[in-house]
Design a protein around this nucleic acid. Structure first.
Length: 155
DNA sequence: GCCAACGTTGGC
DNA sequence: GCCAACGTTGGC
């Protein structure tokens, strides 16, 4: 069965609307080892992604995407002009990974962090843990299904 | 803009 | 390997 993930992005940097417009994108710029391990070792083609807007006017889950290509090295680590450039990374030994992510849909309304906090069935979500800054987090089937239900999405 | 919580760096 | 200093994340 396909795994489920939550991935954070600041909408001022890259929003669900940007993904809708682009249809797909490489999930570049993750520079945290724990998050990197999820991207490199666990994201598989067909996995679901909850697109989370952080540092936003409306913080919360803004839509749905899918992993369309896994295990792809993040090209920005090799680009000396990129803010994500990593001089330690070599093409034959990449450090950072950027799976390709494809737009599925935008929620009619953002499922806000406030709503998530109020929802009993979502109380287990990693994103609610105090001080959890991980930009990539696993989501359980139960959590995912409840979110989809609240958002009124039929898959 | 503030600041708590966390991850990373680097001296020892 | 310890840990203080520093930088970043992200909610508010």
């Amino acid at each position: 069965m396909a795994a489920k993930w939550l991935a954070k992005s600041e909408p001022s940097v890259y929003s669900i609307d940007d993904l809708k417009k682009d249809k797909k994108t490489l999930w570049t710029g993750v520079r945290n080892y724990q998050a990197r391990n999820f991207l490199r070792d666990h994201w598989r083609e067909g996995d679901w992604i909850l697109f989370y807007h952080s540092n936003a006017e409306e913080t919360g889950i803004a839509g749905l995407a899918k992993v369309s290509k896994s295990k792809s090295p993040d090209p920005t680590q090799f680009d000396s002009k990129s803010e994500y450039f990593d001089p330690k990374a070599k093409r034959e030994t990449p450090i950072w990974y950027a799976p390709e992510v494809t737009f599925v849909r935008k929620f009619d309304e953002v499922l806000t962090l406030t709503q998530i906090k109020l929802e009993k069935k979502l109380s287990t979500m990693a994103v609610l843990k105090k001080g959890n800054r991980l930009s990539v987090q696993p989501v359980t089937d139960a959590e995912f299904n409840r979110i989809i239900e609240i958002a009124g999405v039929k898959l």
